[in-house]
Nucleic acid binder design. Structure first.
Length: 580
RNA sequence: CGGGGAGUGGCGCAGCUCGGUAGCGCACCGGCUUUGGGAGCCGGUGGUCGGGGGUUCAAAUCCCCCCUCCCCGACCA
């Protein structure tokens, strides 16, 4: 493609409404243009990337045995009323009416239409399994569209739907999709991890999110840089790396007897001593007062467990993972005490509670609390803390459970290497739906005995347009984008520095020749044949981000070479004209 | 939804406090010069200042209503 003919206008200034790098660069480089909040036009360069991502997804879906179809964007509201998701999505759906005032929506997803389609064609166990997918625009009227392509109201999504006769079949279909997703994100060069996730509005049981590591992600997740371990922050657990032989067995949630017998009090700890600490209800000032690290203080979080008072203990530099606490005391209901609770209970000195609080019926602690030190903690009396509170002597623990929220550097439960807590962009999500939709939409099959059963469904989504942004987030620098070869709009950016000197004609004809030769060789070449200054061409080439730049100039031609620069690494070398 | 900020040629901004009929940079068009990291000079095109209403001789500017867009968003004792 000759740039003199390409529909492209790059911007020198960052667009005022773009904050994140991918949005900023995609707009500046003329890949996309905003039409409305969360809605973008794809210009030629951007469209080529979008198509390449789509093609990779298509290849992997086909390879996994799924078949491509194309459903309408506009769907009858009646289907959504039947599945019960009309109310669930509520204002999230773009709604419209036809001239007869029949309700429609712009598809936020397509379980209903797809299930209805399959149910209408197939009715026998002999027909199953089947897996259909489409690459189609989806519409969600987000409360707050943001970050450009990362959370748009219109986005391109690959959605696949599997139909099986039973759960075993579903699990097999699920596994195929899961593996295909792995390959898709690998081919897109993303740093990603599959994470077991909570199921949201879509329902169903098992599901995994594929998270691309990125600072601008909207969800925190924990992942191991050394192995495949990954989890969302609520579900994440750490490996037990503390070195003390006193560490008790972790009971994993059930309320069991304390195993403190094996615990040894801190050998040198003097008796617990009370100190006057006025106006220090938080960890930081207390640690400063006693001149210790916050990890030497003991944080006591009060919670209500089935009407009784519980205390959760973690080191002062850690935070309690509320989900982990809830899981540890399940099935009993648990909630953290609120300011109102503290206001209502005068006996609870907020900020000065210690693990030996007499009214606590359950004391649950993170294994880190087993470290044999004298803790600094609340004195159960306003404006007072104690030091040298020793486990087994001054307080006891009823339940041991992993309670702390994971932070970067904690040990991986699989391999012991450091975990990393990062933000992630959800680029894919796979669900085992079960029979939920088949039942509400009456999508059944007949088994070998002539009996009717609902089909067992799975659904699988990939954010195609979101991947484009996620890849830019991972692959860019201050000058622009750096496309992986698999997704770059063009393989090579050929730059002709013709100027108007004596050599102009020679440079132009040589660049033309190279353009033809490379194109004939099957390469996609973006050829900067514009009458622009060298600076403009170099800056645009870096901004647009093709993997390789080839520079044809009078200087090089005199020596029979063109210069080559690898965009991502900045490496430069020379290529002899005879070789091209 | 709550809080904060912003709408002025295609893009980025100034002008608004103190009303007087719109300006700068980039981009675009023409000319001359220039050509290895966003060139220089000269001359141009393009905006009913988000929309509606009001005040006034006069409104981008003051007042009222509406729309759009951007950013942030409970709690760790």
């Amino acid at each position: 493609m000759r740039m003199s003919e390409l529909f492209l206008r790059t911007l020198r200034d960052d667009p005022a409404d773009a904050d994140v790098d991918s949005h900023r660069l995609l707009v500046r480089a003329g890949y996309i243009r905003k039409v409305a909040a969360g809605m973008y036009s794809w210009l030629p360069l951007g469209h080529r990337v979008l198509r390449k991502v789509g093609q990779i997804v298509r290849e992997e879906m086909d390879r996994a045995g799924a078949q491509e179809v194309l459903l309408p964007i506009t769907q009858p509201l009646e289907l959504w009323q039947r599945s019960g998701r009309d109310a669930l999505y509520g204002p999230m759906m773009f709604r419209l009416e036809d001239r007869k005032e029949t309700g429609f929506c712009l598809a936020p997803t397509a379980e209903e239409v797809m299930a209805t389609l399959v149910g209408g064609e197939y009715s026998s166990y002999r027909d199953l399994p089947v897996n259909l997918y489409q690459i189609q625009w989806k519409y969600r009227d987000e409360l707050r569209p943001r970050f450009g392509l990362l959370r748009g109201r219109e986005f391109l999504m690959k959605d696949a739907y599997s139909f099986d006769t039973d759960m075993d079949g579903l699990r097999a279909s699920y596994k195929k999709m899961y593996d295909a997703y792995y390959r898709v994100f690998e081919r897109c060069s993303l740093t990603f991890r599959p994470v077991e996730a909570q199921s949201g509005e879509i329902g169903g049981d098992v599901n995994h999110e594929f998270m691309a590591v990125a600072a601008v992600g909207e969800d925190d997740f924990v992942w191991c840089t050394a192995c495949d371990y990954a989890a969302n922050v609520e579900a994440a657990r750490r490996g037990h790396t503390w070195k003390h032989d006193e560490v008790p067995a972790v009971t994993d949630g059930s309320l069991t007897a304390p195993s403190v017998a094996s615990l040894r009090p801190h050998a040198d700890a003097p008796a617990m001593a009370k100190h006057h600490t006025p106006d220090m209800p938080g960890i930081a000032p207390v640690a400063a007062f006693f001149e210790v690290d916050a990890s030497r203080t003991l944080k006591c979080i009060a919670f209500d467990i089935d009407g009784e008072l519980g205390l959760a203990l973690v080191p002062g530099d850690r935070e309690v993972n509320e989900h982990a606490l809830r899981a540890a005391v399940a099935p009993k209901p648990m909630r953290l005490l609120t300011d109102e609770d503290f206001a209502a209970r005068r006996d609870l000195p907020k900020g000065y509670i210690g693990p030996h609080f007499p009214g606590a019926s359950v004391v649950i602690a993170d294994p880190a609390v087993a470290e044999p030190i004298g803790w600094i903690t609340g004195a159960n009396e306003a404006d007072h803390h104690v030091r040298d509170a020793v486990l087994g002597r001054d307080f006891t623990v009823v339940v041991w459970a992993d309670l702390v929220s994971i932070v970067s550097g904690d040990a991986c439960p699989n391999c012991g290497q450091p975990l990393s807590v990062d933000r992630g962009i959800e680029v894919g999500h796979v669900f085992q739906l079960g029979t939920k939709y088949a039942e509400s939409l009456d999508v059944n099959y007949t088994d070998a005995n002539g009996e009717q059963h609902p089909m067992v469904m799975g659904c699988y989504g990939i954010g195609i347009s979101r991947i484009v942004a996620a890849v830019v987030e991972e692959f860019h620098d201050e000058n622009g984008m750096m496309w992986p070869v698999a997704l770059a709009p063009y393989d090579v950016h050929l730059i002709a520095l013709a100027g108007r000197g004596d050599q102009a004609e020679k440079v132009t004809s040589e660049a033309d020749r190279l353009y033809e030769a490379l194109t004939d060789r099957g390469m996609d070449v973006l050829y900067d044949d514009r009458e622009a200054s060298p600076g403009v061409k170099f800056a645009d080439a870096d901004l647009l981000g093709m993997p390789v730049q080839l520079v044809v100039g009078a200087k090089g031609l005199a020596r029979g070479i063109v210069e080559r620069k690898v965009r991502a690494t900045g490496e430069r070398d020379e290529v002899s004209l005879g070789d091209v």
